[in-house]
Design a protein around this nucleic acid. Structure first.
Lengths: 102, 102
DNA sequence: TATTACTTGACAATAAGTGTCAAATATAGT
DNA sequence: ACTATATTTGACACTTATTGTCAAGTAATA
């Protein structure tokens, strides 16, 4: 199972790009990118979009990885994690079909 | 579809309890409880446990509602929300079966 | 050993979440 | 309408998380 950091690092190296080059494109300090690639920090969505661009990765697929990483990390320690995910899916479907709230 | 706030409020009123009484038991300001019941703030886990006690709600079920609410709220605006949840579930299963990380 | 790539940690800046309080509003009884 | 009680709202301080910046560190290679 590949983490988002691994995906980014693998692709960057496959393209022969340096941290310096990618971080310049994304407009972040290369220290941050280094940490992102080692899953020590999470990218923002803006970073993700730019990263997808320069690394020629599918933006939507990367976003799925990003969000799922965040959720998984957030609730992996809960006994009811799996059940909560199922309920969350129902809630989201409900919310999307009833857009007016508050 | 009931939010966690609605669940708490409905049950509190069904039991004929006042915000003041419940918040005293949970040891929080009643303003906070008021906001929790209107989904303006999220309870902490500790609050949830105490709330389950005094409101005679199932602790685990409430926790599922709590976590699923948090996730749903977090990603409802994403087009790929549903897909991300599925991937998250796989990641969690993977993480649980490979407990040693880092 | 000099150079380049990457990593690490300390620190400041910013944002997000929390608790407290008092005033405002609502609700119901008289 | 008046009172009392319940709830809501918003301002604020306080704490905690997140984020960016930087310089010094390590690692690998020529």
């Amino acid at each position: 199972m590949e983490t988002i950091g691994q995906i980014l690092r693998n692709k960057r190296q496959a393209l022969g790009l340096l941290l310096r080059q990618v971080s310049a494109y994304v407009d972040i300090d290369q220290a941050i990118l280094s940490k992102i690639e080692r899953n020590e920090r999470k990218p923002t969505k803006e970073m993700l979009v730019k990263l997808a661009e320069i690394l020629k990765l599918d933006k939507d697929e990367l976003l799925v990885q990003f969000i799922s990483d965040k959720i998984a990390y957030e609730i992996v320690d809960e006994d009811c994690a799996s059940k909560a995910l199922k309920v969350a899916e129902k809630k989201i479907k409900y919310l999307k079909s009833h857009p007016i709230q508050n």
